[in-house]
Design a binder for these strands. Structure first.
Lengths: 117, 117
DNA sequence: CCGAATCCTTTCCGATACTG
DNA sequence: CAGTATCGGAAAGGATTCGG
């Protein structure tokens, strides 16, 4: 036995965990609903296409909710669902670890590369 | 402001977070050192190539340590470094969330697909 | 037993152009 | 504003073969 690994592939969750932008998009919705352009501006380096794709996938997964507001002019907002909020809570430690240890990891890489070319 | 997102791309951590197999390999080392073949047997669906690549990357990142034992016959073990242990601790909540919510996510997908084709 | 190397297919993803 | 459509290069990743 090895930790929490169950033996079968975690089909259905992997796409979230592996998605290049999913974590940062979810994180961007931490403080409440946002519009497409707000998200685009707030996320460094994301293309329009990838933001669209990421939002669609997260909506499909039940992580966020897409709402069309019929005011004038009409606009669309994205916000976390309850399931999305629990996901964000669970993901926070890992994001914080990443933020806190980027330098250590890069140092380890530099060391490794200098040893082995 | 939006959660823990700093605005700059998290260069250096993304490869770990995005890697298809990194989490499950790290998790497989939770209980101690393992040999290549043990890992291969324990991880469902991983190819020899991807296990090799994943182990190299994690070693390079300072997450795990590769040790060549000069006994007869010689063998090689992989184990988490202290940095790797902190990574695993940080990743646990997300892995547990994934394990606990696969069904919910798949249900959400089925609902979404039945609504929109 | 633990890989490295090669081949080949699939998927990702940015750039660009267009739409209601 | 909030997308959709299409293209093409880049990267991932499986299968297979070979080596120490």
């Amino acid at each position: 036995m090895s930790g929490t690994h169950s033996g079968r592939p975690r089909v259905g969750c992997r796409p979230i965990l592996e998605d290049k932008w999913a974590l940062v998009v979810v994180d961007s919705l931490a403080t409440g609903a946002r519009r497409f352009t707000e998200l685009k501006r707030g996320i460094d380096g994301i293309s329009q296409r990838m933001l669209t794709v990421t939002l669609r996938n997260l909506e499909r997964d039940g992580i966020l909710l897409r709402t069309v507001h019929n005011v004038m002019p009409p606009h669309i907002t994205y916000e976390l669902t309850p399931l999305g909020s629990t996901f964000l809570q669970a993901a926070r430690p890992m994001m914080q670890w990443a933020e806190a240890n980027v330098d250590r990891v890069e140092q380890a890489r530099a060391d490794y590369d200098s040893r082995a070319g």
